[in-house]
């Protein structure tokens, strides 16, 4: 029946149109929100950018104010990544290629659960448990490896150091990196693993020949996603880190640069006037850095399609 055929086809088209409209709308909404946030940051930050140096908290201008914060942010995040990324790769390898299936599943859930713990809980844990526990280790590092600028000390007696902040951040970004890397490792074609094993590769050689090269770009991409998360983390750092300002790569002393996000959280309630604009300007810098890192991560993850080898 041509008539009913036409109606049924046009009905499908209407559904298609509605769905296309909905999904386009959702996509546009994301862009609108992003643009809105960017506009807010730019507009509110502007007064601080053009204000005379003396009006900025610290009295030396906005660059001098933001630079140590940016330094602290990047230092803590990169340090967290250096700790978390190798660990995440090892965990992902264990889950996908070493653990018995039942244990692997349980462990996978457990790692995902780490992502569900609120950051304030991590802050509390870092402050109350991890910080005191590291005092002895930092003292040891200071006494034995004090010639390395990272451990120049003197060690903090409370343990609220950059090292502890980075450790807490590492635990927080671990689940993201592990989850992405685990997925990539699972997709290693069975065919290639068998090719390696049939050549007489041991289990570890097989992993080095097929699984790691196959997952390489996923590891890079996942690490950068983790970096993005660590850059923006607020509460845990605000609670753990003992802050004095200034730029220092000394990881175990009590005087540390703060991070942008933690600084905003701590100072915002007491700020008025141009100080608020200055904080927002620092937020703008963080926004730009995080956006850049995340975009870079996307680029790397997408590039893996070209040589994924799923042929």
């Amino acid at each position: 029946m041509p008539v009913s055929e036409r109606t049924s086809r046009s009905r499908v088209r209407a559904g298609d149109r509605v769905f296309a409209g909905l999904s386009t709308g959702a996509g546009a909404l994301i862009l609108a929100v992003l643009a809105g946030v960017a506009t807010f940051l730019l507009v509110e930050a502007w007064p601080a950018v053009v204000a005379p140096s003396a009006d900025i908290p610290g009295g030396q201008g906005i660059t001098v104010y933001i630079w140590p914060l940016l330094f602290g942010t990047v230092l803590s995040a990169v340090l967290a990544l250096l700790i978390a990324a190798p660990l995440a790769v090892a965990i992902a390898l264990f889950i996908t290629h070493y653990a018995p299936r039942r244990l692997a599943q349980g462990l996978g859930y457990l790692i995902d659960l780490l992502a569900a713990v609120p950051s304030i809980v991590y802050g509390l844990w870092g402050l109350a448990v991890l910080a005191p526990a590291t005092v002895e280790a930092s003292t040891w590092l200071y006494q034995n490896l004090g010639w390395i600028p990272l451990f120049a000390g003197p060690p903090s007696s409370t343990g609220r150091t950059m090292l502890v902040a980075a450790l807490v951040l590492a635990v927080m970004v671990l689940p993201i990196i592990t989850a992405v890397v685990r997925e990539a490792f699972l997709q290693t074609p069975r065919l290639h693993e068998e090719a390696a094993l049939a050549l007489g590769a041991t289990h570890w050689e097989m992993i080095r020949m097929t699984v790691l090269p196959f997952g390489r770009s996923a590891i890079i991409g996942a690490s950068m996603l983790g970096l993005g998360r660590a850059l923006g983390e607020t509460m845990a750092v605000a609670m753990v880190l003992s802050v004095s300002g200034g730029v220092s790569i000394n990881l175990i002393s009590r005087s540390n640069p703060s991070t942008i996000a933690a600084n905003i959280a701590l100072d915002f309630p007491e700020s008025t006037g141009i100080a608020v604009n200055t904080l927002i300007a620092s937020g703008l810098v963080l926004f730009a850095v995080t956006l850049a890192v995340n975009m870079l991560a996307r680029v790397v993850i997408n590039r893996r399609r070209d040589f994924s080898g799923a042929n």
Partner: peptide, 27 residues
């Protein structure tokens, strides 16, 4: 055992991340 008994599979499976040379040299 596997390093002394070679195997060729149903679907061609050269290592995609290796060059032709490295594939042959892998074993």
């Amino acid at each position: 055992v596997r390093s002394h008994i070679g195997m060729v599979f149903q679907r061609p499976n050269p290592f995609p991340t290796m060059s032709i040379y490295d594939n042959v040299a892998a074993g």
